[in-house]
Amino acid sequence: MSAQNLIEVRDLNKAFTVRRGAFFRRTTASTKAVNNVSLDIRKGEILGCVGGSGSGKSTLGRMILRLIEPDSGEVRYDGQNLGALSQEEMRGFRRRMQIVFQDPLQSLNPRRTVAENVERPLLNFGTPKAVARRRVEELLELVGLDPTQSYRYPHEYSGGQCQRIAIARALALEPEFLFLDEPVSALDVSIQAQILNLLGDLQKKLDLTFLFVSHDLKIVKQFCDRTIVMYRGNILETGSSEAVYREPKHPFTRDFLGTVLHVRGDMRWEQAAERAEDLEGTAKLGGACCPYVGNCADCFDACRGSAPPLIEIENQRNVACFLYDHR
């Protein structure tokens, strides 16, 4: 590992329980959203995170930003354990990491003008109003918007433009880390490219580190340096984006690539859709076993007995699958 780690995640766990009532609390259901996840994010890299819906990718990112408190495990940001910080100390770290959401319109306050939306983080950290206003102009120009229109309201802008505004707001505090939670999923394909180019340019210009969550392997392959593949709260595979895309090791990654890519002609669309449903649809199996055992074409006895650990099979390639576990 040559580059320095900006973020180190160790054994992070989060289970969501569905509770009813505030006083007569009873747990009615529990889902393990993130299960024993450890990962490193290096300074200046774009780490992609792919997986189907409900695979825990967003939860993972929110726990890194401490928008959701983890059940156990720790997140170290620049060597500092964020979980140990008081609310007041956490404020200081909030300037250094920001988030961009999937739904751009929803992530802006509809009753505040674009300028008010973008200047809010600056005002929170005590920037004088006049300085903040000038900075808002710079930021809007930085993301390719016309600052003279900043008195307008978010709904007057298109989805792509709103996403630019959200990016400008996220950059206002000059963070070094951005958590991009499916930033292009809600946009038209033509706009997706624009936003991705913008993010790529900004990353180089401002020397940012990204955690880029997506369910689109193609985008992750083009945009990210490294990729982690998640399924039901577990990391199944990691590696350089190129390697994960070119030769997926884990059976899930192969199936997942299949659902996304091999869609040519009417028949194949349907098959892919069915396959994708299969991947998510099976009931969760109890006890210790591989999380993907229900759908895996290659599963054998060992898979049902215990969950495979994430092991390094070649240089910077980690897979959690007994097929590669030759110990």
């Binding site: 930003l65 928008l67 956490m90 404020r91 909030r94 300037r95 990491m97 920001q98 988030i99 959401f101 999937q102 739904d103 929803q106 992530s107 802006l108 306050n109 509809p110 939306n117 809010r120 983080p121 929170n124 950290f125 959200a166 707001r169 206002a172 505090l173």
Partner: peptide, 11 residues
């Protein structure tokens, strides 16, 4: 999401 964004920027 805008409320979550507000939390993320330490409002």
């Amino acid at each position: 999401a805008y409320i979550e964004a507000a939390k993320a920027m330490a409002t």
